[in-house]
Amino acid sequence: MASTYDVNGIPTVTLNTIQLLTGYNYKKWRNQVDFYLAMNQNMDLCLTEDEPEILTSESTDEEKKHYKEWHKANKMAKNVIRTTMSDTVRGSIEEPDLAMDFLYAIHDMYRESDKAEGARLAKEFNDLKYTGTGKVREHIMKLIEINAQLRDLNMGVTDDYVVHTALHSLPNSFSQLRTSYNAQKEKWSLKELIAICVDEEDRIRKEREPSTSVNLVEKPKKKYQN
């Protein structure tokens, strides 16, 4: 979303700054579209009010005006929705007459996609193990990143559970650290977890380094004859 603000301090969103709807960014896209429609030319009229009845010879000027405004808003809203979708997504959804039905159709499609994506991410989160390849910091950051994606799908876990999962995803060389954590009452934040694990990794690495000692052999002194 754009970081610019209007004279009243309200963040502004332009059509070009709406995130293109592609794979699994539905929630962000929907929030930006809703905000844009609400803040521009009353385009959300077609989303907040029911479609007006067909005009008749007895319709009042006010009803005619409302009818025109509502259908104009519907047309503009559909255009915003359509132009902020990737070609692939647009081609997979049949476009209805009403903008609200258009949004419902997109929501239904991504509700099923969210379930599949959530299941995949949850499995990756639980199966991810640190084998010693790379750095432990990157491993924990990967767990945090996966959980952030799960939270976008309303399927994430607490930071405490991330700490628990991260510690049990480490190899046996970190068993002393796990024992220490389980024995104490205080819980670690994610930042503390990373810092402590990095220190422990350095300690383990230093213990495994072969010790080198330099044996200094004193050379025998030469005897000089007078």
Results as ranks from 00 to 15, higher is better:
residue 150 L to I: 04
residue 75 K to A: 15
residue 191 K to G: 09
residue 191 K to A: 10
residue 106 I to Q: 04
residue 61 D to H: 01
residue 40 N to S: 10
residue 18 I to D: 03
residue 44 D to F: 04
residue 78 K to C: 13
residue 116 A to N: 08
residue 176 Q to S: 14
residue 60 T to V: 08
residue 50 D to A: 11
residue 208 R to V: 11
residue 106 I to N: 06
residue 4 T to M: 08
residue 94 E to Y: 01
residue 62 E to C: 04
residue 161 Y to K: 15
residue 26 Y to T: 05
residue 71 H to S: 10
residue 92 S to H: 02
residue 82 R to F: 11
residue 143 L to M: 11
residue 191 K to D: 14
residue 225 Q to I: 13
residue 225 Q to P: 09
residue 46 C to K: 05
residue 138 E to C: 06
residue 195 A to G: 03
residue 137 R to L: 14
residue 60 T to E: 04
residue 55 L to I: 01
residue 204 I to M: 07
residue 154 N to H: 08
residue 189 S to G: 10
residue 135 K to F: 05
residue 138 E to K: 07
residue 66 H to L: 13
residue 158 T to H: 02
residue 183 A to Q: 07
residue 105 A to R: 10
residue 135 K to Y: 07
residue 67 Y to S: 09
residue 7 V to L: 12
residue 216 L to C: 07
residue 218 E to N: 14
residue 139 H to S: 06
residue 34 D to Q: 14
residue 23 G to T: 15
residue 18 I to C: 07
residue 62 E to L: 07
residue 51 E to F: 06
residue 226 N to V: 15
residue 216 L to A: 09
residue 5 Y to E: 09
residue 63 E to T: 01
residue 140 I to S: 03
residue 96 P to A: 07
residue 114 D to K: 04
residue 172 N to P: 08
residue 104 Y to S: 15
residue 33 V to N: 07
residue 213 S to F: 03
residue 148 A to F: 05
residue 178 R to T: 02
residue 74 N to W: 00
residue 99 A to Y: 00
residue 5 Y to F: 09
residue 68 K to L: 13
residue 71 H to E: 12
residue 182 N to Q: 14
residue 125 F to I: 03
residue 177 L to C: 02
residue 119 A to Q: 08
residue 140 I to Y: 00
residue 81 I to T: 11
residue 18 I to A: 06
residue 56 T to E: 03
residue 184 Q to V: 08
residue 16 N to Q: 13
residue 198 V to R: 01
residue 138 E to F: 14
residue 27 K to P: 08
residue 71 H to G: 06
residue 205 R to Q: 11
residue 136 V to C: 01
residue 46 C to Q: 03
residue 147 N to Y: 03
residue 49 E to L: 15
residue 198 V to C: 10
residue 24 Y to H: 09
residue 198 V to H: 02
residue 116 A to R: 12
residue 89 V to I: 10
residue 76 M to Q: 14
residue 105 A to L: 14
residue 86 S to K: 04
residue 113 S to N: 09
residue 99 A to R: 00
residue 133 T to M: 05
residue 114 D to S: 12
residue 162 V to K: 03
residue 214 V to T: 11
residue 95 E to A: 14
residue 193 L to G: 01
residue 170 L to Y: 00
residue 25 N to W: 02
residue 12 T to Q: 07
residue 108 D to G: 10
residue 162 V to W: 00
residue 129 K to R: 08
residue 215 N to S: 14
residue 220 P to T: 14
residue 184 Q to S: 14
residue 109 M to E: 02
residue 154 N to F: 08
